[in-house]
Write a protein that binds this DNA or RNA. Structure first.
Lengths: 191, 191
DNA sequence: TTCATTTCTTACCTTTAGTGAACGAGTTGG
DNA sequence: CCAACTCGTTCACTAAAGGTAAGAAATGAA
C-alpha cells in the first residue's frame, strides 16, 4: 500500500528514507466504503485524493439527475475544482467501490511543498502531464460520435465498462442511458 | 507588450527588476502573421506559447478534414501535448489573426525554473488552475446538447463567435458546420 | 426468502444531427 | 475580367439521440 504510493512518486522524483517517513507520519491512507460521499455540492473542502485501489467518481446533480463526468481508478489523482478556487464545490465526489485512498489536505500539501521543493516539482510535472492528457481526451471526445466514444472506451479502458454501472457510463459518454443501451445493441448486431 | 506579460505574471508571483530584465534579455516576443502554422502534425517541438494579442488555434487533420478543438486568445497559454511527451505532435497549431506571442522553448523554461524557483511555483499554480478549469469545461461539454453549448459560448465567449470562422466554431462545438448553421437559424426563429 | 429499489432493456414517437448536393456571396490569383 | 476556391447557408434524406413509458433483470435489505 505505502509502496504503491512510493513507486508512483519515484517515477517523478527520488525519495530519501527520511522523506518517506515524513510522508508516513502524516497518516494519509484511508479505507473508504462503497457509496461514501467524499465531497458534496456546495461544500468547501481542501482535500485532494489519490486512488491506490478502487474507484471514485465525480458527478453533478442537474435537474434531479446524476450526471457522472469522470472516474478515477488505481494510480489516478483528483484535486477537485473547489480546492483550487476555494469556492463551494460544483459537484459531488463519491466512492464507487470499496477503496483505499490517499487523502491530503492542501495545507498539508503546501507545507510539504515548502519543506521539500522536490514535491513542488513533482506536482508541477504531474499537473502538466494531466493537463496535456486531458486536452487529448477532450479533443477525442469532440471529434467522435457517441458510438465511436464507446468503442474507444472499450479499447482504452475495458475495465471501466465492467466495473461501472451503465447509466453512469452513459453520462460519462455524454448521452442518455437508453441511448447507450441502444448503441450497444446496434454494435452487437453488426458483428 | 512587456507590461502585459509582467502584469499577468504578477498575479502569481512578484517579480524583481532583475528578473524582469533576465526575461526581457531572452527576447521571447514574436509578431506572427495570420495563417502562419506554428506547429505541424508529426513535428517535434519544444515551444510553448502565450498569447499577448490575437488568436491561435489547435486542429487535427482527420480524413482530410480540419477539426478545430481549441482557441487561445489574450492572456491564454498553450503548451502543446508533444512538448510534454517529447513525441511527434498529434495536431497542428496555427495563427488565426495577426498576433503577438511569447514563445518559450522548454529548455529555456527549465533553465529559468531552476534559476528562479519562483517560476516553478508559478508554473505549478498555473497548471493546476488550467487543469481544474478545463475539467469544468469538459464537464459542461459532456452535460450539454450542441444547442446549449452554442448558447453557453454566446454567453461566455461572445468574442470568439465574432472573430472565428463558423466551420471552425462548429468542430469546436463538436458538430458539423451545417448543423451549426441550422441551429443558429432555429435559435433566431424562437426569438 | 421476499419485497422494494435500482438498473437495464425495449418500444414508440419526436427532435436533432449527419450526409451529400446545390446555391450564392465573397476572395484570390492568373 | 474570369475561373477557381472558400465559406456559409439551405434542402432533402437518413441515421441517431432524446423523451416517455413499460417491463424484465439484478441487487440489496429486512
Amino acid at each position: 500500500m505505502e509502496n504503491t504510493l512510493f513507486d508512483f512518486m519515484s517515477k517523478y522524483i527520488s525519495l530519501t528514507e527520511e522523506e518517506k517517513n515524513v510522508l508516513l507520519s502524516l497518516d494519509l491512507f484511508r479505507s473508504v466504503k462503497k457509496g461514501t460521499i467524499l465531497l458534496k455540492e456546495g461544500q468547501r473542502s481542501k482535500d485532494s485524493y489519490f486512488v491506490l485501489k478502487g474507484c471514485i467518481r465525480t458527478y453533478y446533480m442537474i435537474e434531479g439527475e446524476e450526471k457522472t463526468t469522470a472516474f478515477f481508478t488505481e494510480l489516478e489523482p483528483l484535486t477537485p475544482h473547489c480546492v483550487i478556487t476555494k469556492a463551494p464545490s460544483e459537484y459531488f465526489v463519491s466512492c464507487l467501490e470499496d477503496s483505499i485512498l490517499v487523502v491530503a489536505d492542501s495545507d498539508t500539501g503546501a507545507e510539504m511543498n515548502s519543506k521539500f521543493p522536490k514535491f513542488d516539482l513533482m506536482c508541477r510535472i504531474l499537473s502538466e502531464e494531466l493537463l496535456a492528457k486531458q486536452q487529448l481526451d477532450f479533443d477525442e471526445f469532440k471529434t467522435s460520435s457517441p458510438e465511436q466514444r464507446y468503442l474507444n472506451l472499450l479499447q482504452k479502458r475495458p475495465d471501466l465498462i465492467q466495473r461501472v454501472p451503465q447509466h453512469q457510463l452513459a453520462s460519462f459518454l455524454g448521452i442518455q442511458p437508453q441511448s447507450l443501451s441502444r448503441l450497444r445493441a446496434r454494435i452487437s448486431e453488426k458483428k
